[in-house]
Design a binder for these strands. Structure first.
Length: 424
RNA sequence: GGAGGAAUGGCAGAGUGGUCGAAUGCGGCGGUCUUGAAAACCGUUGUACCUUAUGGUACCGGGGGUUCGAAUCCCUCUUCCUCCGCCA
């Protein structure tokens, strides 16, 4: 959520910058300004009337104490009008606040200055690439065939137990998942991240705090009976740790990591994109989250990008890093880098990580602040997060790129974690 | 699942209808003293909003109600504790 002072004082900039995201904010901003003005007028009068009532009440108390019951009685009768006015004012105030809030949540985060304009994927900017493309034989097959051939992932059984998009990992397939999770968590820990194991369901407030609600409600599984949501990413519980928290400046930066399963309904997706592990309703992911001082958040973003990059390098996968253009960047993000690995049999780039700086957009929703040491005032912190990494597409690329006549050869770094180097 | 008790400022803990945003202690911050530190003493120490010269309003787990006036009374929800039952 953008802050009210920003919109009030720089409405032109807000409108201009949101154009990069192909979002026309003119009308909403106009309404925000009007509603905000209205709201403040109501608030001012309400406060004044409350003050009046408080004064009268205090007086009545004194009169009763002094035994001047008749005078007290008179004063009491005078309050009726005042009370009625207060009632009207406070209901118009909360109405006005609701309207304002509904407007504010519709505005996306401002993109960072460096975000290139663009309509979609095609306009993303490649900023780095690395790794070697494997040379596969003509018999090379996509990972869904390999999964069956080596009996490590059973899509049919997952389908039987639950439904499509819920794969069942078996034997070395299951062990490989566990190995990757441990590898990622260990690497994150070495880079200074504290490990968490959070709840997998969150309440509405948490969903709102990180920006999934109210807009992306359809993307999450909802447990209606208890009004809980299955997390689409560990970002949600791990960032919401700091909802309504005021940190000391010296607490920053906070660097957290967590492994969780992630649940996504992904309504509307279909066809070739969803084959095998490419797109799932349940998948495993290790996430990194940072709470940062505003002056250092972009430095932190670069550091996170480097960190994720070396993970992929250690896995010896061909990759590229893209800076998302205005049209592809998410509602909540100011700047996002996507990481893609190349799955050689499908001959497709698969997104395995998305690293973003949300600046104060989430923090404003979360009411996550720190205390500035100079001014002693509370200031919104910056939040960042990224996958390090999402497992299924990594597995897809590992299987496809490393297939050989005698089986799948795992990268060396994983062997201590798996206990085997070939899946055959 | 059943029965009882509780929820107050960073923490502990008073406060059962009026001047209570809230005693007191601890902690934090600033100062005096000291070569320095400790101790002692003095001061200060919640958040948000409105208005800004001041000043005002709201908030004592959440929501609603009674009253001229609510931390205090009533209703409701949530959470925690104790006991019983069930259980990985």
């Amino acid at each position: 959520m953008l802050t009210l002072p920003l919109i009030r004082e720089h409405s032109d900039t807000v409108i201009k910058r949101l154009k990069i995201k192909n979002f026309d904010a003119t009308e909403i901003v106009q309404k925000v300004l009007e509603t905000d003005k209205q709201r403040r007028e109501i608030q001012t009068e309400l406060d004044a009337r409350q003050a009046d009532l408080n004064a009268v009440s205090k007086q009545i108390g004194i009169l009763f104490k002094e035994g001047k019951n008749e005078e007290a009685q008179e004063a009491r009768e005078k309050t009726a009008l005042l009370k009625e006015r207060i009632k009207t004012l406070s209901s118009t105030l909360s109405e006005s606040e609701n309207v304002l809030n509904n407007l504010l949540v519709q505005l996306p985060n401002l993109p960072h200055e460096s975000v290139p304009p663009g309509k979609g994927e095609a306009d993303n900017k490649k900023i780095a690439e690395g790794g070697r493309f494997p040379r596969l034989s003509n018999e090379a097959v996509p990972h869904w065939d390999l999964a069956g051939k080596y009996d490590i992932i059973d899509f049919e059984l997952g389908n039987k137990i639950t439904g499509s998009g819920f794969p069942l990992y078996k034997g070395k397939g299951a062990k490989l998942q566990r190995a990757l999770i441990n590898f990622f968590l260990d690497e994150n820990q070495k880079a200074g991240y504290t490990e968490f194991l959070p709840p997998l369901m969150v309440n509405e407030d948490s969903g709102f705090g990180t920006g999934q609600l109210p807009d992306k409600e359809g993307q999450m599984y909802h447990v209606a009976l208890d009004n809980y949501y299955l997390i689409p990413t560990a970002e949600v519980p791990v960032t919401n740790i700091y909802r309504e928290v005021i940190l000391n400046a010296s607490d920053l930066p906070i660097k957290n990591t967590a492994y969780t399963p992630c649940f996504r309904r992904e309504a509307g997706s279909y066809g070739k994109d969803v084959r095998g592990l490419n797109r799932l309703h349940q998948f495993d992911k290790v996430e990194i989250v940072q709470i940062q001082h505003p002056e250092r958040s972009y430095q932190a973003l670069e550091e996170m990008v480097k960190h994720v990059e070396q993970l992929i390098q250690k896995l010896e996968l061909p990759y590229r890093i893209l800076q998302l253009c205005g049209g592809d960047i998410s509602f909540t993000s100011a700047l996002t880098y996507d990481f893609e690995v190349y799955a050689a049999a499908q001959q497709k780039w698969l997104e395995v990580s998305s690293v973003s700086n949300f600046e104060s957009f989430q923090a404003n929703r979360l009411k996550l602040r720190y205390r500035d040491e100079e001014t002693k005032k509370t200031v919104l912190a910056h939040t960042l997060n990224g996958s390090s990494l999402a497992l299924p597409r990594i597995v897809a690329a590992l299987l496809e790129n490393n297939q050989q006549p005698d089986g799948i050869h795992l990268p060396e770094i994983l062997v201590p974690y798996t206990g085997f180097d070939v899946i055959s």
